[in-house]
Simulated scan of single mutants.
Amino acid sequence: MSDESDAPYEAILRAVGDSSLTATVLLRTQQARTERLFQLCTATPDFLAGIDTIIVLFTGLAEVTVSPAFRSLLERAAAESIRAIEGLLADDQQTVNDTARVMMEIEVLLQEWTVDLDRMTKWQDMEEERRHQVFGFGKVLQRLKQRQGVDDQLVMPERQEYHVHSMTLHPTHEPSDFLPPDPVWMTSEVLIHMERVKNAAIALVLVDDKRVGVDPDSPPRGWRPDVWGRLCGHYVGLRDQALNEILAEKGMVMTPRVPIPKGQSRIVPADQAEDTDGAADHSYEGE
C-alpha cells in the first residue's frame, strides 16, 4: 500500500495505479467526492445536518403511519435522498437525474392521495403490472391536471421537468449537458426535489385521516424545519440569482412555474413577460 494513512478503498486503488483504467476512474471519483463534500460543508456548515433532518422527517413519518403505501413511499424517498447526495458528491448527473425522476413520481402520488385517499388504498392493493398502468407518472399527473381544472392545451410544469430528467435515460448521440456541472446548480436540483416530496408528505399528513394515521400536531422528533429551510433556501436562492443574471444578460426572464401552452418555453424575452418582474419562480417553499 502506498500510504498507511489512506483509507483501504483509496489505498487499493493507489496500489494498482495507472496500470488500471478502472482504478484511475474510481480514484478520481473518490477524490471528487471528498472535494465536493469539503466545498459544501465549508460553504454551508449545516449541510449534513440539513440532509439528516429531512431524512429524519421521512423515516420518522414512515415509522408512525398506519398506511403501508405511505410508509413505502417515505422509505423510498429517504433512500433516494441519500442516493442523490452520493450522486451529487461524485458529480454523477445520471444518478442525480434518476433520483429526481423517482422523487417526482413519489411527489405526484402523494399529491393525488391527498385529494383522493381511496387512490392510496388502490395503489397499495393493485398488482404490480396494473399499478404501473394506472399509477404511472403521466397518468397521475393527468388526473391531477384535470382535478385542478387546467386546460388540456396547457402543459404541466412537472411534465416538462420530468422530461428533462429523462433525457439521458436511454442511449443517444445527442449531447446531454442540460444540467450544468456546477455544484450550486446540482445541489439545488437535489434539494428542491426533497423539498417538494416533503411538502407533499406533510400535506397528506394534514388531511388528518385515520387511513394515514399520523398526528399532524406531532412531527417526528429530530425534524428541524429551520435547518432544512435555511439549507434548501440558500442553494435554491443562489441558483435563482445566477439564472436571473444569465437570462438578464440576454434580455430574457423565466416565467412562473405554472402550466403553459404546448410548444412554448418558460424562458421568454423580458418585454414579453407578464407579471414576472424579471424574477424566476423557484421558491423552495414548493407549490
Rank of each mutant, 00 (worst) to 15 (best):
V134G: 05
F135A: 11
F135C: 08
G136I: 03
G136D: 10
G138C: 03
G138P: 02
Q142K: 14
Q142Y: 03
R143E: 03
L144R: 10
Q146N: 15
R147C: 04
Q148D: 15
G149M: 06
G149E: 08
Q153E: 10
Q153C: 09
L154H: 14
L154G: 13
V155W: 00
V155Y: 01
E161R: 12
Y162P: 04
Y162V: 03
V164Y: 11
H165D: 08
S166M: 09
T168W: 02
L169Q: 14
H170A: 12
P171A: 15
T172R: 06
E174M: 10
E174H: 11
P175W: 05
D177Y: 07
L179S: 05
P180H: 03
P181C: 09
D182M: 06
D182C: 07
D182V: 08
P183S: 10
P183A: 09
P183N: 06
P183E: 07
V184A: 12
V184I: 14
M186F: 01
T187G: 07
E189G: 07
V190M: 13
L191R: 01
L191M: 06
I192P: 00
E195N: 12
R196Q: 08
V197Y: 00
V197W: 00
V197L: 06
K198L: 04
A200T: 00
I202N: 04
D208S: 10
D208E: 14
K210H: 10
V212H: 00
G213R: 07
P216D: 04
D217T: 13
G222H: 11
W223A: 06
